[in-house]
Design a protein around this nucleic acid. Structure first.
Length: 910
RNA sequence: GCCCGGAUGGCGGAAUUGGUAGACGCGCUGGACUCAAAAUCCAGUAUCCCUUAAAGAUGUGCGGGUUCGAUUCCCGCUCUGGGCACCA
C-alpha cells in the first residue's frame, strides 16, 4: 500500500468529526491545559497559507500536551462582527449576517482540511446572540461599577452612592448629593462608572462614518480602510481602561510573554512619574491658578513661559481682550486640522500669545502664557511649564518666538539645541545648585510638596477606550434613555438583539440603528451606537470554558478548572489593542469575582507573518515574447507578476501560462536549458501580486500532513519568513520514508522482533529531542531530529514494533493523519490521541558513551570514549592514563586539564 | 529622534547558551536502477591553494577586548526588521 494521503486524510477527518475524537470535558482527575489561537476574522478572501502557521503550532502543542496526560482545551471560533462585512453590505446590499455565514463556512472547510484537533462543539461566533448576550452583560456590570482607588479595584457603584449619602466622596458632599436631582446624580455617577458616557476628544473617521479607538488609528489614518481621521469632541460611551493602567503595567512582569511585546504594552501604557504643580496667573486684573504636569520639577528655575493646548478650557479664561481675535483664530485653525495634518506639521512650530502671564512659583517671575498645538489636551492637565534650555520642543518654540532660554546644567551648551539629558550639575537654580540632576528632581519634588505648591503625580498615556461606533454590524448597547438619562436594560432582557434595518448605507453623522423601526424599550429610545470590534474578542476565551451555559458567562466550576489560557498564539498586531482590552476586561471580571485569575493569557507566543514570494516573467517590450531570467539583460523587458501557482521551483509552466490569461495565449518563450526561469521577490502576500498560496492547493498536491510539517520546518514559529514552496518536497519525502518503515508496497513490515540497541538509541534520542524542543516551540529542529531518526532506522532495516509504535506516537502531533492510519494498522482500536507519551518516556534509556576529543592547546590530537556519566575527574584520569602518543611524550608539560563534561578535554601544555 | 530585535554557505536555517561552526532540508554535481522518464537510493557540496588526495590556511556583518577556547560575553561601528513618536 502506497502512502495515499488523500484517502487517509479524508478518512480520518471524517472519523474524527463523527466520533468527536477531540471533544473535551472538565476532568478533575487530569491536569488541565488551555491552548488558544487568536480567533480569525472571517474575511471574504478565505485563508491563505500564512494564517494556519500559528494554528498548526498551537495544534502540535495541544496534541503533544494530550499525549503527556493533560486535559487540553483547544477551541476555535470566529471574531465575526466588524467593519469589512458591513462595508461589503453597503456596497452590495447583502446583509452582513449572510456574508459572515458564508465566510465562516468557507473558513471551516479550509480549517477542517488541515486536521486541527479543535473541539468544534465549543465553537461560536461573536455575532451569535447567545454569545453577545455576555458581552452586553459585562457592559452592564461595568456600567454598574466604579474604580475604588483606595482598594485599587472595581466595586459596585452602590458602594459609591452610599459614600455620597453618608460621608461624601471627592467634591460630592452628602448635602450636594441630597440636593441633586435624578439627572444630576446620573451625571455625577458618570464620572466614576467603569463604562460611562462622556464628552471627549475622539478620533472621528468621516470615511467610515464612525469614531475609532486609538489603536484603530495609525499615522492619522484608520487602520481599516485608510481614511483620514480628525479630532472631534463628542459624547461617546467609554471604558475606564485608564483606571487599570497601573495594574496592567505591573502585572506584565508576571507574564510569560516576549520582551518586545511587553515593551510595546509598557510604551502604550506610558507611565511617567512627575509632579503636578500650581502656577498662579495674571490675566488683566484677575488671578487664576492653573495646574501643570512635569517630570522635571528640577527645572522650574528655567521656566520662561507656559503653554496651553488649543483645546484646553483654560484658553478662553486666560485670553486678554487684545489677544482674543488672534487666539480664537489659532484655536479654530487647529481644530479644523485632521490628526494626520497635525502629525505632518510636528516640525513646524506654531503658537499664539494669550496676553496673560503666569507667576513662577520659585522665582516669582512673570512669564508669558502661550497657546500651541504641541501641547496635547488629553495628556496631563493640557498645560505645561516650558523649559527651553532642557526640552527640545520648548527650545524650538522659544527660538521661533524669541523667548529667553536659561541653562540650568553646568556645561550645557544651549546655543544650538536644548540639553535634554538628565545628567550633570545644577546651576542658576537657587537651592538646587550643585546637585546632580537625579538628586535635584527628588529635592524639587520634596520642596514643592513641603511648600504646598503641588504634589507628586503619576500620569499614564493610556486613555480610556472609546466604546461606541456609529455602525450597524456590532453588539447593540443594552441601554435605553429615560428622559435623557441612560439606564441599563434588566439582565433578563438580554440579549438585546440587533434589529433588522432597511438599508446599510451610512449617512453622515447618523448611526444606522436610528433607522431601525421600534428601536425602543418600553417606549424609551434605545442607544443607537453599537460596540466596537474589540468588545466581542475581549472575553471570548472565557466563554470557551463553558460555551453553552445560558445562565452565566462561565460557571464557577468550569472557570475554576480551566482558570486561564496557558498558551496563547497570535500575531503582534494585537499588542496595543485586543491584548490590552482583554487584560482590562479580565481584570474587571476578576475584581467583581466572576473569574478566578487576574490575567487571561499566561504564556503568549507571537507567530511571525508569512510573506509572499512573488514570481516574475519578463516580456520584451512591444512583443508577446518572454525571456527567461538569465537572458533578460539582453533585451529591454518589462517585469510582470505571474501567478505563483503556475510556477514550480521558479520554473514556469508554459502551457498553464498560456492558459492563464487570454492575452498570453500566443506567448512565445526564450528558454534557458529548455526551461523558463522566473525572477522572484519577497512581498506581502496579496491578490494583486499573484503570490497568494491557498492551503487547499497544498493539501491537494501534498496533503495536510506535509503542509503542517512544512510550515513548521520553514523556520522558528516566531519569525517572519517568506512562503517558498521549494523545500516542501523534502518534508514530503520524509513522510514517504516514514511510511516505508511500515509498508513496502503491499507488504506490512512491522514484526515483533526485539529492537536492537542501535534502534533503541535512535528512538530514545528522538524522544529526548522532541520533548525538549516542543516545550521551546522549536518545531523545525524536532522535525530535523525526526528525519535523522527515520534515516537511521531505515538504514538499520528496523522492523521492530517496539520501536515503530512509539515512533508513530511521536509523529502524531505533527502529522496526525498518517499517525492515525499507522496506529490503527498496528492494531489499535482507539485513536492515537489516547496513546500515552509518558509510557514511552519511561523507557527512555539513552545510555551511551561520549567521544571526547582530546586536544593540546586547542588542537585535537586524539579521542577517547568514556561513559556519559563520567565525572570530570574520571575523564581527566582516563586521559592521563592513556598510552602516550608521540606528541604527548615529547617532554610536554601538562599545565592544566580542562574537562567540559560530555564534550571535550583540552590540555594546556608548555 | 527614542525603545526592542536581527546579521552564520548558493538558499531556509542548526549549534545542548563559552566547548569539534554549518545539524536537518532545499538547491547543485556525480553515480546506481530504467529502453526512457518519474519515483527511489548512494556519494559529494563553506572558502582559498591543488589534476586529485593528504596536509594546511581562512571563516559566523566590521574593528577591538576578555578567555586555554567566542557565532555565543564586553566596548565601538555598519547594515537591517519591527514598535513608538510633539506624552511635558
Amino acid at each position: 500500500m502506497d502512502y495515499d494521503f488523500k484517502k487517509i486524510e479524508k478518512k480520518w477527518q471524517d472519523r474524527w468529526a463523527e466520533e468527536k475524537t477531540y471533544k473535551v470535558k472538565e476532568d478533575s482527575s487530569k491536569p488541565k491545559f488551555y491552548v488558544l489561537d487568536m480567533f480569525p476574522y472571517p474575511s471574504g478572501a478565505g485563508l491563505h497559507v500564512g494564517h494556519p502557521l500559528g494554528y498548526i503550532a498551537s495544534d502540535i502543542y495541544a496534541r503533544y500536551k494530550r499525549l503527556k496526560g493533560y486535559e487540553v482545551l483547544h477551541p476555535m471560533g470566529y471574531d465575526a462582527f466588524g467593519l469589512p462585512a458591513e462595508q461589503y453590505a453597503i456596497q452590495t446590499g447583502q446583509h452582513p449576517e449572510k456574508t459572515t455565514s458564508e465566510n465562516v463556512a468557507r473558513y471551516r472547510r479550509q480549517l477542517d482540511r488541515i486536521g486541527f484537533s479543535y473541539d468544534w462543539d465549543r465553537s461560536f461566533r461573536t455575532c451569535d446572540p447567545d454569545y453577545y448576550k455576555w458581552t452586553q452583560w459585562a457592559f452592564i456590570k461595568m456600567f454598574k461599577s466604579w474604580y475604588d482607588p483606595q482598594l485599587d479595584k472595581a466595586r459596585p457603584i452602590t458602594e459609591l452612592i452610599e459614600k455620597f449619602e453618608t460621608v461624601g466622596y471627592d467634591d460630592i458632599t452628602p448635602e450636594i448629593w441630597a440636593a441633586a436631582d435624578e439627572k444630576q446624580r446620573s451625571d455625577i455617577l458618570m464620572r466614576y462608572r467603569i463604562a460611562y458616557l462622556g464628552e471627549t476628544s475622539v478620533n472621528w473617521c468621516e470615511g467610515l462614518g464612525t469614531v475609532l479607538a486609538n489603536d484603530e488609528v495609525k499615522d492619522g489614518l484608520s487602520v481599516r480602510g485608510g481614511f483620514p481621521v480628525e479630532q472631534r469632541k463628542m459624547k461617546q460611551w467609554q471604558l475606564r481602561v485608564s483606571a487599570y493602567a497601573g495594574r496592567l503595567l505591573d502585572s506584565l512582569d508576571k507574564l510569560d510573554w516576549t520582551d518586545s511585546l511587553k515593551e510595546m504594552q509598557r510604551n502604550w501604557i506610558g507611565k511617567s512619574e512627575g509632579t503636578e504643580m500650581v502656577f498662579d496667573t495674571v490675566c488683566g486684573d484677575t488671578h487664576k491658578p492653573i495646574t501643570i504636569f512635569t517630570t522635571r520639577a528640577d527645572t522650574v528655575f528655567g521656566v520662561t513661559f507656559m503653554v496651553l493646548a488649543p483645546e484646553s478650557d483654560l484658553v478662553d479664561e486666560l485670553t486678554t481682550p487684545e489677544q482674543r481675535e488672534a487666539v480664537q483664530e489659532y484655536v479654530k485653525e487647529s481644530k479644523k486640522k485632521t490628526e494626520r495634518e497635525r502629525i505632518s506639521e510636528t516640525k513646524t512650530v506654531s503658537g499664539v500669545f494669550t496676553g496673560s502671564y503666569g507667576i513662577n512659583p520659585l522665582t516669582g517671575e512673570k512669564i508669558p502664557i502661550w497657546v500651541s498645538q504641541y501641547v496635547l489636551a488629553g495628556y496631563g492637565t493640557g498645560a505645561i511649564m516650558a523649559v527651553p534650555a532642557h526640552d527640545s520642543r520648548d527650545y524650538a518654540f522659544a527660538k521661533k518666538f524669541g523667548l529667553p532660554i536659561i541653562p540650568l546644567i553646568e556645561g550645557a551648551d544651549v546655543s544650538e539645541q536644548s540639553f535634554d539629558a538628565k545628567e550633570g550639575r545644577m546651576i542658576n537654580s537657587g537651592f538646587l545648585n550643585g546637585m546632580e540632576v537625579k538628586e535635584a528632581i527628588e529635592a524639587a519634588k520634596d520642596y514643592v510638596e513641603a511648600h504646598g505648591l503641588g504634589h507628586r503625580k503619576t500620569n499614564y498615556r493610556l486613555r480610556d477606550a472609546v466604546f461606541s461606533r456609529q455602525r450597524y454590524w456590532g453588539e447593540p448597547f443594552p441601554i435605553y434613555y429615560k428622559d435623557g438619562i441612560p439606564v441599563p436594560l434588566p439582565e433578563s432582557e438580554l440579549p438585546l438583539e440587533l434589529p433588522a434595518i432597511s438599508s446599510f448605507k451610512s449617512v453622515a453623522g447618523e448611526a444606522p440603528l436610528e433607522r431601525a423601526e421600534n428601536w425602543t424599550y418600553k417606549g424609551y429610545p434605545l442607544e443607537t451606537s453599537t460596540m466596537p470590534g474589540f468588545a466581542g474578542s475581549s472575553a471570548y476565551y472565557l466563554r470557551y470554558m463553558d460555551p453553552h451555559n445560558s445562565e452565566e458567562l462561565v460557571s464557577a466550576d468550569a472557570n475554576r478548572y480551566w482558570r486561564n489560557v496557558d498558551l496563547y498564539v497570535g500575531g503582534t498586531e494585537h499588542a496595543t489593542g485586543h491584548l490590552i482590552y482583554s487584560r482590562f476586561w479580565n481584570k474587571f471580571l476578576f475584581d467583581m469575582g466572576y473569574v478566578c485569575e487576574d490575567e487571561p493569557f499566561r504564556k503568549l507566543v507571537n507567530q511571525g507573518m508569512i510573506q509572499g514570494r512573488s514570481n516574475f516573467v519578463y516580456r520584451i517590450v512591444g512583443t508577446n515574447r518572454f525571456v527567461s531570467l538569465g537572458l533578460k539583460d539582453k533585451y529591454e523587458t518589462t517585469e510582470i507578476h505571474v501567478d505563483v501557482n503556475i510556477v514550480h521551483n521558479d520554473r514556469l509552466d508554459l502551457d498553464a501560462f498560456r492558459a492563464w490569461r487570454p492575452e498570453y495565449k500566443d506567448a512565445e518563450f526564450e528558454l534557458e536549458d529548455g526551461e523558463y526561469i522566473c525572477g522572484w521577490a519577497i512581498e506581502k502576500m496579496s491578490k494583486s501580486m499573484y503570490n497568494v498560496v491557498n492551503p487547499d492547493d497544498i493539501c491537494d498536491r501534498y496533503g495536510a500532513d506535509t503542509l503542517r510539517l512544512y510550515e513548521m520546518f520553514l523556520g522558528p514559529v516566531e519569525q517572519s519568513k517568506p512562503w517558498d514552496t521549494k523545500g516542501i518536497d523534502g518534508v514530503n519525502r520524509f513522510l514517504k520514508k516514514f511510511w516505508r518503515l511500515f509498508y513496502d508496497r503491499d507488504r506490512w513490515l512491522v514484526t515483533d522482533a526485539k529492537a536492537s540497541p542501535a534502534e533503541l538509541k535512535s528512538l530514545h534520542k528522538l524522544i529526548g529531542k522532541e520533548q525538549e524542543d516542543i516545550e521551546n516551540f522549536s518545531y523545525n529542529t524536532t522535525i530535523s531530529a525526526f528525519m535523522i531518526a527515520v534515516g537511521e532506522l531505515s538504514d538499520l532495516g528496523c522492523s521492530s514494533r517496539e520501536v515503530l509504535e512509539p515512533l508513530v506516537v511521536l509523529l502524531s502531533p505533527f502529522a496526525p493523519h498518517m499517525a492515525e492510519e499507522l496506529w490503527h494498522a498496528l492494531g489499535h482500536e482507539d485513536s492515537v490521541v489516547y496513546a500515552s507519551f509518558p509510557e514511552y518516556v519511561a523507557a527512555y534509556t539513552v545510555e551511551d558513551s561520549v567521544t571526547y576529543p582530546v586536544s593540546f592547546n586547542g588542537k585535537t590530537r586524539f579521542t577517547v570514549d568514556l561513559p556519559r556519566k563520567a565525572t570530570p575527574a574520571e575523564v581527566e584520569a582516563a586521559v592521563r592514563a592513556l598510552p602516550q602518543t608521540a606528541k604527548y611524550t615529547e617532554g610536554l608539560n601538562v599545565v592544566k586539564v580542562i574537562v567540559v563534561p560530555g564534550r571535550m578535554v583540552n590540555m594546556v601544555v608548555k
